[in-house]
Amino acid sequence: MTLFRLAGDLSHVLAILLLLYKIWTTKSAAGISGKTQLMFCMVYVTRYLDLFTSFISVYNSTMKVLFISASVATVYLIYFKFKATYDGNHDTFRMEFVIVPALILALIWNYAFTFFEISWAFSIFLEAVAILPQLFMVTKTGEAENITSHYLFALGSYRALYILNWIDRYYFEGHWDPIAVTAGIVQTVLYGDFFYLYFTRVIKGRKLQVLP
């Protein structure tokens, strides 16, 4: 495992825990897109179907269980426990606009036409765009709380670090996963605007506000 990947995974875990911490301590899901979280939950479940069929390492299995359980917990907090605080009226992105294309693409582009491989490819494609409802919500409300901004930054950094990991693996191991790399680049590019705002505003101690 490359250092980039370890840093990426830790950034991913940090993002998920930051979000849970924010919702739990403020007892509020305000400003958080339930749709994005619901799609991330679908991403983890469809990707980690191999949890019981192919063992890679204790690290891998532990992370998979952590991602699935933290994601289910997040969805539960948003849609059940703190449902009253969830801004459903600002969370207007249509999920089918990304779920259907991700499924169609997975049926066309996969490593084998089997249930597991199509499910894996679907999960990779859906992950690339699952953040759209959240970014759409930030744009629509015009701002994001600081912890939400830190969450988005950690989540965006995760796939950016994976890109460095893929470059490293390509050079040193000859390993090359075109589906993950393509989707990972799209995923990172989607955070471009946000990264810019994060560095120019949040790091300077201001709240993230999207100007017209």
Partner: peptide, 10 residues
């Protein structure tokens, strides 16, 4: 080719 030797990344 590539990518099909089991998905070892998360």
């Amino acid at each position: 080719e590539g990518g099909n030797e089991g998905h070892d990344e998360l």
